[in-house]
Nucleic acid binder design. Structure first.
Lengths: 342, 342
DNA sequence: TTGTACGCGTTATCAG
DNA sequence: CTGATAACGCGTACAA
């Protein structure tokens, strides 16, 4: 026996077509506005749509059209200060290009729970943040030409994947050179990031280059782990201070670690910048509000997100794109380095 | 960079079935692990899957099963300090429950570009942040029983939509009472949030209640717009100061505005807390690192995200849920209010 | 335990 | 300009 159409079931394109007295093809046309439709007919269809509260089903659309209109973002976890601006850039650029954003964090999932939801059949392209995806999966995507863009991470050997990041090395050099030139520092500590972190190793490279330039010997004891984390940096610095290591300044791999270092310094009775000068990296929003305001290398984080997304969109559209984009960094001088009224 | 060659025939379930010498139903079974399959057969299928790099297409799956396994999040925009912790809570809870997260910001889209992607056909449920969705659309979703949970926003009249937010009123009272009781303030300025913002109006209510409790008359001139924004709060305060308004303390509707107010105060030559005491709201990560460290009402923002997501998941599963959850706030006393070494 | 056949709701292709 | 109709890839009764 036939059941009458219940209100429970959402309207489909067929329902709309029936009510408007046209075919589903015509409904599709007015919904997508691609092909011309006689205004009068179009109006009837639109009325039917409104009356039935019709909303096209994305899944059916995707299945038929083979386009998802969504971009995937894969990150290890959502860490506050640094991540928010980047996400804003990504979302803005994606939205402007007409894409939705599907976020996938790898940190919270048990390995066996990770589904392939962000693979090539569920997004049109992928934004992959530093170290958040397995090598094998990346290679698979790369080999079939699926659009992928890396953020703050260069492509593995042999994979032709574009990268967007910042001028880490140059920024670091700028910072350290400033400490040397403007403030006469020679014993400068480097507060490093997580083991193996690409940003951190480029920044360390810049640090060493600046040292070399001024014939200051590199002292491995001056590289202290900060882990890009306020807490860990504070702890590290406290231990270092207790160990009696001598230094005049700190170049911190990132601002959050710099904050931790400043706390530790202060607790040890050291004044900033009189006793120890410090320069950070990233220029997170908080940096200017610290006391003293933190001199830091400004990294255009939101711009990184935006640029990477634009690039990915072009990749999705099979347009030609650059292989590597390094966004410029610059030294933002405030007072923690000893400048100004410091 | 060269255009990658597109592989236009990714493996389908049929390909796998053919290679393994079974039917697609069997492939489906081993992929989803629901029905029993002879181990030997299952192994053949899995080999075929690996060999063909088979990944099920989400769209087809959704279409057939009518479940998306993704949750939608609608926010006006991604604002740094406050949003990141909430997003972390949401993502963590969603991930643990096996859902993906589709993010949709309304601020960046031109109205005509907004698609209905987050409607009932593309997600299993929706998390809606304060004021980011049109009333009509909400009512439509509500009327068909689509799972929706509000964040920091109570449901419109007549709609039975659960809410998760924090104890705004109580937190505000705590803050203002502290200023009155512990520091003897009587002329306390309220730095309000955006016009019509629900959090802000609850906080203002708490502020006025505290005043009443101590028989301090409410002076409308003491309510100054801060817009939950550092810059706007700074500007507002500068103007207010120039206008000669007298006050002993500021209760700021949120921490970011407090930061702006502190800048303005300092620029006007006022000391904190000697000349003006200040208390914020939210306890963003930056608060403890300000000088002086900001006394503020701690709001469990990450917990809000997590709780709301858990609730939404239960709603999706058609389980019974609470209608309103108010997460507790508490006063975190640091030094900007005059306590400690202030 | 496995296979067959149909349905899910759109878009795209071709005739008319 | 409009209408049939064939994909699209997978889940799932139902049958074997």
């Amino acid at each position: 026996m036939e059941l009458p159409a219940t209100n429970n079931n959402p309207a489909t394109i067929q329902d709309v077509a029936d009510l408007a007295g046209v075919s589903i093809a015509t409904v599709s046309r007015v919904v997508n506005g691609k092909s011309p439709v006689v205004p009068e007919t179009a109006q009837r269809v639109m009325d039917a749509i409104r009356q039935l509260n019709y909303v096209p089903r994305a899944a059916a659309r995707i299945l038929a059209s083979k386009r998802t209109d969504t971009l995937g973002l894969i990150v290890p976890e959502i860490s506050g200060e640094f991540f928010a601006p980047m996400l804003r850039g990504i979302e803005a650029a994606a939205g402007e290009a007409g894409f939705d954003l599907l976020i996938h964090t790898t940190a919270y999932k048990k390995p066996d729970m990770r589904r392939h939801t962000l693979g090539e059949h569920n997004t049109d392209g992928l934004l992959v943040f530093i170290g958040s995806m397995e090598q094998a999966e990346l290679e698979r995507l790369g080999s079939i030409g699926f659009p992928v863009v890396f953020l703050h991470q260069t492509a593995p050997e042999g994979l032709d994947i574009p990268v967007v990041t910042v001028e880490n090395k140059k920024g670091a050099m700028l910072a350290v050179e400033h400490l040397i030139e403007a403030h006469g520092c020679r014993r400068i500590l480097y507060l490093s990031g997580p083991e193996g972190n690409e940003d951190s190793s480029w920044r360390e490279r810049g640090y060493r280059l600046a040292l070399e330039k001024y014939n200051i010997p590199f002292d491995p004891a001056l590289v202290v782990p900060g882990n890009f984390s306020t807490r860990q940096a504070a702890q590290s610095m406290t231990e270092t201070l207790a160990g009696g290591l001598e230094f005049e300044a700190i170049f911190s791999g990132d601002d959050l670690a710099a904050v931790g270092a400043m706390s530790a310094l202060r607790e040890a009775g050291l004044r900033i910048p009189e006793d120890v000068k410090i320069v950070g990296f990233d220029d997170v929003p908080l940096a200017r509000h610290l006391t003293p305001p933190l001199t830091t290398v400004h990294a255009p984080t939101e711009e990184v997100g935006r640029t990477a997304t634009d690039l990915l969109v072009r990749l999705v559209r099979r347009e030609a794109v650059e292989r590597e984009i390094l966004l410029p960094t610059e030294l933002t001088i405030r007072q923690s380095c000893g400048c100004g009224n410091g």
